[in-house]
Design a protein around this nucleic acid. Structure first.
Lengths: 210, 210
DNA sequence: CAAAAAACATTCCCATCAGTATGTTTATAA
DNA sequence: TTATAAACATACTGATGGGAATGTTTTTTG
C-alpha cells in the first residue's frame, strides 16, 4: 500500500493518477473540507468504491496531491538551479519557471495552498502526522533553493537584501499569490501565461524602482 | 438584526465583539471548517446558546470577522494615503503599516485569508452571497489603494513597473504571506514587530538588487 | 416590586459525509 | 476454460456538527 511501492502495475499507477487529478480539481473547486470523496468519484464518472479501492482515506489522497504538486515545482526549477548562472539571473529564471508551474498545475497548487493549514491545526493526525511533516519538510527544501540563491547573490554581489529569510518569504509569497488571483481562460494561449510569468518574475526580482 | 444596526446597545456590541474575537482565534486555530461553534463558545467559557443569541449562523460570524479584519487594514493605511508624500515613500509606509496590522491582528487576518476561498466555492450561499460580494469588493477597494499609489508613482517618476495590476498583486501577495509564516512569540516586543515590518516592506519596495 | 424581555444554558434533531461491508463485473493467471 | 483476484458499484453505518426548540437565569422596564 506504500505510495512509492514499485510493485504497482502500470494500470494501478494510471488509475491512482486519474483519481489524484480529479481530487485536485475538486479540492480547488470546493476547498479541502467541502470537497467530498463522492465529488471526486463523480468527477471521474464513478463512485466511491473506485476511490477507496485505490486509496485508504481522503487524507491519503490529499497527501498524494501535495506530493505531486511539489514534484511539479522541483521538476521545473531544479534544472535551472544546476545551471551555472549569476545569482540574479538564476533567481529570475527560477521565479519565471515557478510562475509557469503555478498556472500550468493550478488545481494542485491551489489545493495544497488552501489545504495545508487546515491539516496543520487539526487536533489529531495520528500516523498521518509524520507523512505531513515529510511533505512540509519537502516544501522547506524547495524554498531553501531560493534562499540558497539569495545567499549566493549576497556573496557574488549581484543581489542585496537586508535579510535572506525574509526576502525568501517575500518572494515565495508574491509568486504563490498567483494561484489566488490567476483565472484560467480557455482561449488563453501558452504565450499569455509566459507573458504573465515573465512580468511577475521581473517585477519581483528587478523591483519597482526606476 | 442588521449588523450595522445603530440600535444595538453598548452591551450588545460588546458581546458581539467578544464572540467575534473568540471566533477569529478559533478560525485561526482550527481553520474555517473545522472550527465549530462549540469551539468558539468554549473559548468564551460559554455554550452555543450565547453565540446563537447574537448571531444567526456561523457564516454571519465569519463575515463579521472579515469585516473587522478589513477595518483594521483601512484604519492603519488610510491616514498614510492622505498624507502628501512621493509615491515611493508613501508605498513604503503603507507596506510597513500593513505588515504591522497583519501581525497585530493575526487571528483576524489569518481567518479571512484561509476562509474566503472556501466560501467562494461553496455550492449555494443564498442571501449570504451578496454580503460576501460586498466584503470582496471592500478588499478590492483596499488593494486599489496600493494600485493607485503605484499609478501615481509612474506619473511622478518615483516608481517603475511593467504592469500596475501585476505589481499590485505581487506586493499584496508578499505582504499578506506574513500571516502564513509569522509566529507569535510572547516575549516578542512591539519593537521586534516593527523590525520585521520594516525589513519586509523595504525588501519589497526597494527590491533585492544592489 | 411585578412583568417582560434579554441573555444565556441545555437538549434535541437531522443532514452530511468518511469509511465499511458486501455485492457484481471484468481482467488475469493457471 | 476455469479459478482467482483485481476493479469496481451499491448499500449501509456511525460520528460529527449546524442549528432549532426549549428551559432557566439575569436585567431592564413600567
Amino acid at each position: 500500500m506504500n505510495v512509492s511501492d514499485p510493485e504497482l502495475t502500470a494500470r494501478q499507477k494510471n488509475n491512482r493518477q486519474q483519481i489524484i487529478q480529479a481530487a485536485a480539481v475538486c479540492f480547488m473547486k470546493y476547498g479541502l473540507e467541502k470537497a467530498t470523496v463522492d465529488h471526486m468519484a463523480s468527477e471521474l464518472g464513478s463512485t466511491k468504491g473506485r476511490v477507496y479501492h485505490h486509496f485508504a482515506s481522503k487524507d491519503e489522497i490529499f497527501f498524494a496531491v501535495y506530493r505531486q504538486a511539489m514534484q511539479y515545482c522541483f521538476d521545473a526549477v531544479l534544472p535551472i538551479v544546476s545551471r551555472p548562472l549569476p545569482a540574479h539571473t538564476k533567481l529570475l529564471a527560477m521565479a519565471q519557471a515557478h510562475s509557469r508551474v503555478m498556472m500550468d498545475t493550478l488545481p494542485f497548487q491551489r489545493s495544497i495552498r488552501q489545504g495545508v493549514n487546515s491539516y496543520l491545526h487539526g487536533p489529531e493526525l495520528g500516523a498521518d502526522r509524520e507523512v505531513l511533516n515529510q511533505l512540509i519538510a519537502r516544501r522547506n527544501e524547495y524554498e531553501g533553493l531560493y534562499r540558497a540563491v539569495l545567499q549566493m547573490g549576497l556573496e557574488d554581489g549581484t543581489l542585496s537584501v537586508p535579510d535572506v529569510a525574509i526576502a525568501g518569504r517575500a518572494i515565495m509569497g508574491a509568486l504563490n499569490s498567483l494561484v489566488d488571483w490567476y483565472r484560467v481562460r480557455p482561449e488563453q494561449s501558452q504565450a499569455d501565461r509566459t507573458q504573465i510569468a515573465d512580468t511577475l518574475a521581473k517585477t519581483i526580482i528587478n523591483g519597482i524602482l526606476p
